[in-house]
Each structure stands twice: as structure tokens, then as C-alpha cells.
Write a protein that binds this DNA or RNA. Structure first.
Lengths: 190, 190
DNA sequence: GTCTATATACCGATAGAC
DNA sequence: GTCTATCGGTATATAGAC
């Protein structure tokens, strides 16, 4: 692979340029998939946004599906993973979504691969949350909490419901935190 | 519409047969749109499911888009409209979704028309709910409640998260009611 | 390494035979 | 009224020129 190891001059070796192009294509793909969903985005559109030739997109990623797979990968150190605290997750979801997350959610209702990725992601978070709260119906209550955050994310960033898309990040976090923890904190109230 | 109620013979006048075919096409369309979303469903697929010729689909509805518009129309006397009570809405959403609602939700993230329909539908429900609860942040809290129910619906009927898709209708209604009313009923608790 | 040209395959929609 | 045949358009993906 790497053939110009000790080259001092043009820091832009062929492989470096190639890698840069590949990254630009991936960024463009995330935006296109995030804006239009899997089916409505075309490799031509991705190429246009990336400023490259359409055939280069497939040269680098093989197929539209493979490009989608690459585009929806969540970074390993995703903030949500570490955050057991509801408020942290809420804060993340109130703000603008990272491109790969937007691409993932946009297609979760129509593309099996995206649906599975979201399902596994949320099932994990439900397990973690359920282990923390305990009490009767812990898993179901955790699932409802996680589902509520998903609904809020969709309402705010995709459907743009009036009340939630016009509210400030702070207001969302403040009011939603109280609403979603009202139940979790009152587990003995029954 | 229904003209052959007590008919024992065929009684299939041309217009009656035509209306019956039209209804079969619409039913098939709702299922296809509901299962695959707008873009992945083909008029050929709708025709196949309806057991008619592909050209008949467009003969009756003009275009794929017009067919979609017809397929996502919610019945006028929609139960949710009348139900100001959260539990009633929850009950409806816990059970299997009616085909037109499933078709609508399936495409709400990718088809502008569906997105708008859901937005208007939910904005109305938020207004009604907000007027009922009052207090500070009434609209925002109502929006969070409605968004939570949407998230629960998506998690249960589309993503099939483990905890919510395996639970019984009764359990969902019971636990979700408590979770979502914990905040609404405690408006002075702050 | 990047772009041109094209193979292959469906799609929605239309016109006309039966 | 229903089906056959097809038009025109666009997509993914590939092969080869530069």
C-alpha cells in the first residue's frame, strides 16, 4: 500500500490525497443521508456535495449500501454510552444532532440496517438504565424513558413540532428532566 | 358505497365492481406504504398485493403520490381527536396501529407530506393538552408528553425494542400512564 | 488516480388492444 | 373495464480512456 514512505516533499502523497477525498465523501454522505434518507439520496448527489466525480464515490466505498453503513457508524466514545445520567443524554439530544446520528435516525423507519442499529443502541441503554433504577417494572419503565427521549428528538429535530423546536436547549433540558424523572424518582409511590 | 349488503346473487354492476377494486387497491396501498415506506413501495407492488393489473392502480388514483395522499388520510372520527384523556390515547397507541396511521408514521421522516401531516396532527393535540393542564411551561410539557407517546409508538411498533414490544397492552398502558402523568399531575411540586 | 462512457435494470406513467 | 406493450427517465455499477 504505502509506497512513498520517506518522501519529504509534497506532504500530499497520493495516498494522503486519496484519504482526504475519502473523508470528504464520507462527510458529504452523512449530510445527504441525514437530510434525505437512504433511498432519496443518490451517489451523484453525494459526489456533487463532496465536489468529486460520481464514480469516485463507488471507487472508494464499493456500493451505496456500504457507504451508508460507513456513514451511520457512531463514534466509539459516544457521549451517550458513558452517560448514565438522564440529564446528560437529554443535553446531548436537545442540541443539534451529530451528522451520523441524524443519518441513522432519518432512515430508522425505512431501512432495516438503520432500524437494527437503533434498536440495539437503545436496548443497551434500556438495560443500563433499568439496572440502575430497580423496583417493579424497571425494564419497562426504563424503556419508556428511553423511548420518550427518542420521541422528543424526533419531534424537535425532524418533525419540528412547534413547542419543542422553538424552545431553547436549556428549557428543553429543564422541563424534560423533570417530566422524565418524576416517575423514576417516585418508584415507591405505589 | 355498500350496495350489495343482503345480495345473494353477484349484483356486481360495473360501478360497484370498480368501487370494490378501488377499495382493494387503497387497502393494499396502505399496507405497502405502511410496511416499506413511500419510496420503497412500487405501484407494481401495490397492484400485486391487490391482485390487479399495475396500470389499474394509476387508472384509479392518477399517480403514486396521489395514492399515497389517499392512503394516509386519517378517518374523520379519529379516536385520538376526541380523547383528551391520556390513557385513552395510550390505549389506542399500545394496540396495533390502523393501517393509515402506520403508513403515515412510516414515512414521516422521509416524505415532506407525511412529516407535515404528523406535525399538524401532533401540534393540535399539544394545544388541546396544554390548555387542559395549565401552569408554567404548559405548552412545553404538553409537547413532551405527546412526543413521548410518539416515541413509545415508534419503539413498540416500528423499532420493536425488546422491553416495549414484548410487553402486553395492559402493562404498557399501566406503566406509561403513571410515567407520563407523574409530571402533569405534579405541577405545583416545584 | 481521476473522469468519460456505458451496461443493466427498474421505475412511473401513457396509449391502445381486447 | 382490464390488460399488453412501451416510452422516457433515472438509478447503480462497471470498464476503459487519459
Amino acid at each position: 500500500m504505502r509506497e512513498d514512505t520517506v518522501v519529504s516533499k509534497p506532504m500530499t502523497s497520493r495516498s494522503a490525497r486519496r484519504a482526504a477525498t475519502q473523508a470528504r465523501i464520507l462527510d458529504a454522505a452523512r449530510q445527504e443521508f441525514g437530510d434525505r434518507g437512504f433511498e432519496a439520496t443518490t451517489v451523484r448527489g453525494v459526489a456533487r456535495r463532496a465536489g468529486v466525480d460520481p464514480s469516485l464515490v463507488l471507487q472508494h466505498y464499493g456500493s451505496k449500501s456500504a457507504l451508508f453503513t460507513a456513514a451511520i457508524q457512531l463514534p466509539p466514545g459516544d457521549p451517550e454510552e458513558a452517560a448514565d445520567h438522564l440529564a446528560e443524554v437529554l443535553k446531548v439530544r436537545a442540541a443539534a444532532l451529530p451528522p451520523e446520528m441524524q443519518a441513522l435516525i432519518r432512515s430508522m423507519l425505512t431501512v432495516p440496517e438503520a432500524s437494527e442499529a437503533v434498536r440495539h443502541h437503545l436496548d443497551e441503554r434500556i438495560d443500563n438504565l433499568a439496572a440502575g433504577i430497580g423496583g417493579p417494572d424497571a425494564e419497562l419503565r426504563a424503556a419508556i424513558t428511553v423511548s420518550s427521549i427518542l420521541g422528543l428528538t424526533v419531534a424537535r429535530h425532524f418533525l419540528q413540532l412547534r413547542a419543542v423546536s422553538s424552545a431553547s436547549d436549556d428549557d428543553i433540558v429543564r422541563v424534560a428532566s423533570r417530566a422524565l424523572t418524576a416517575d423514576l424518582g417516585a418508584e415507591r409511590s405505589r
